[in-house]
């Protein structure tokens, strides 16, 4: 039976880990490779690097970081932020990523999802969606939560999956960094609308929040960041809580 995943997310900038609160107020928390390998040992199922600068100049630094990480990390690594074209996807995978997250680029040109899936397989194309509750619906934002679009998140997730995305990384902008729980209604709506795995993101404050995202929210995976980096909980704490809640969890080696 496929187990539910706990994914440690490292927001990176200049090859350092940072974590913001509602996408602003950045502070540096450590070396990505050290943190990623530590989380692997503690039982994390995957690692995500999100490049929050997402600029062309930063991409070289990010790919170098992916390369250094891939040589030491033996669980899957997803990188996102600033990936725009199929050539960028190729370069990211070549550098050491197992999966690539596409956000603003997919909104601007959805064909990049199908092109990437055709060339590399759907399993490495992650549609990353940032959503905010506005006027009675979930509006999709791009560019790190700064730019509103006309897209509605649930419909957009379904379109991403139809176009070839093999996974949806769904972040609630309202909850990001707030530590008051994932947006369960948003997560459930998207999980029900697509047949690809959904990763819930934004709002983890404790182990119960993670369990709720996976049970009530219907997510296949939960993404956590700040509470791990700050030592509020450990990966082992979260995995134990998931197991105690009756969720299928990978057996520790």
């Amino acid at each position: 039976m496929l187990t539910r995943r706990l994914i440690a997310c490292l927001d990176v900038r200049d090859a350092r880990v940072v974590k913001g609160v509602q996408f602003v107020g950045l502070r540096e928390v450590g070396d990505p490779v050290e943190l990623a390998t530590r989380y692997e040992v503690e039982g994390a199922d995957e690692i995500v690097y999100l490049d929050i600068a997402a600029s062309a100049e930063e991409r070289v630094t990010l790919f170098d970081l992916a390369r250094r990480t891939a040589e030491r990390l033996f669980i899957p690594l997803t990188i996102g932020g600033g990936i725009r074209t199929v050539d960028d996807i190729a370069a990211a995978l070549r550098a050491g990523a197992d999966k690539v997250g596409l956000n603003s680029a997919a909104v601007r040109r959805p064909e990049v999802l199908s092109e990437g899936a055709a060339r590399f397989g759907a399993q490495c194309i992650v549609a990353s969606i940032d959503a905010k509750w506005e006027d009675g619906r979930y509006r999709v934002y791009t560019h790190g939560g700064r730019t509103p679009t006309d897209l509605e998140a649930v419909g957009w997730a379904a379109e991403c999956a139809a176009r070839g995305a093999g996974e949806i990384l769904l972040t609630s902008i309202d909850r990001d960094g707030a530590r008051d729980g994932y947006d369960l209604a948003l997560t459930r709506a998207v999980a029900d609308a697509v047949s690809v795995p959904v990763i819930a993101s934004g709002g983890a404050g404790n182990a119960a929040h993670v369990c709720a995202a996976l049970s009530q929210g219907g997510a296949d995976a939960a993404l956590v960041a700040g509470i791990l980096h700050d030592g509020v909980v450990t990966v082992a704490d979260l995995k134990r809580a998931m197991r105690d809640a009756g969720l299928a969890v990978r057996e520790a080696a």
Partner: peptide, 11 residues
Amino acid sequence: AARVPQIGWNA
């Protein structure tokens, strides 16, 4: 299967 691709850890 209901969810394809299969992504994650399996026994």
